[in-house]
Computed example of a mutant assay.
Amino acid sequence: MKKKVSLKKVLIVLFSAYVCYIIGSTQISMTKIRKELNVRQQELTKLQEKNEKLQDEVKMSKTDDYIEKLARERLGMIKDGETPVIPKK
C-alpha cells in the first residue's frame, strides 16, 4: 500500500520550512546588530569620557594657575626673586 502525498501537505511543509528559514535569518541579523550596537555604545562611552576630560582641560586652561604653570614649564619664566634652575640633559 502506497500512501498518497497530497499537494496540501507538501505546501504546508514547504511553507513551514520557509517560515523557519525567515525566523532563523532574522535572529542571526538581530544578533549581529546587537553586537554592533554594544561596540558602538562602548565607543560612545569612551568618547564621552574623553570629551569630559578635554572640557575639564579647557576650563582649567583658563585659570591663572594653569597659565603660570605653562609659562614656567614651556617658556622657562620665573617670578621676581627666584633663582632659575637649568637641568642637565
Rank of each mutant, 00 (worst) to 15 (best):
L44I: 02
Q55N: 07
S25H: 01
R34E: 06
K59E: 12
Q55G: 08
T63R: 04
N38W: 10
Q27F: 03
K62I: 06
L47K: 09
E43L: 07
R40C: 03
V39T: 08
R40P: 11
D65V: 14
L44W: 04
K46I: 04
R40E: 07
E57S: 03
R34D: 14
K35V: 02
L44E: 08
R34F: 13
Q27R: 08
V58C: 13
L47Y: 14
N38R: 12
K50V: 00
V58I: 15
Q48D: 06
Q41H: 06
E43S: 08
K59D: 15
R40Y: 04
K50S: 03
M30Q: 03
K62E: 13
I28C: 04
E57Q: 14
Q27P: 00
R40N: 10
Q55H: 03
L37K: 04
E36F: 03
E52N: 15
K46S: 12
L47W: 04
M30C: 06
K59H: 15
Q48L: 09
T31K: 11
K59I: 14
I28W: 12
D56E: 11
Q41C: 08
T31D: 13
I28V: 13
Q42P: 02
T63W: 07
L47H: 09
E36M: 03
L47E: 01
E49R: 06
E43Q: 12
T45K: 10
Q41W: 00
N38E: 10
I33E: 09
D64V: 11
T63D: 01
D64Q: 08
I28N: 10
K46R: 13
L54I: 03
T45C: 06
K35E: 00
M60T: 15
L44D: 00
T45I: 05
K35S: 11
K50R: 12
I33G: 00
E49M: 07
E36L: 01
E43K: 09
V58P: 05
L54M: 06
T31Y: 12
R40H: 05
T26I: 02
M60L: 13
I28E: 12
S29A: 10
M30K: 09
R40M: 01
K53N: 09
G24W: 07
E36R: 06
K53C: 00
V58Y: 03
T26V: 08
M60H: 15
V39K: 15
D65K: 15
K32D: 15
V39F: 10
Q27I: 06
D65R: 15
T63S: 09
V58E: 11
K35L: 09
T63V: 05
T26D: 12
T45A: 07
E52G: 09
E57W: 13
Q41I: 00
K32T: 01
M60D: 13
T45V: 02
V58K: 14
K53Y: 00
T31F: 05
M30G: 04
E52T: 14
E52V: 11
I33T: 04
S25L: 01
L37A: 07
Q42F: 04
S61P: 09
T26L: 12
L47G: 10
N51G: 00
S25C: 00
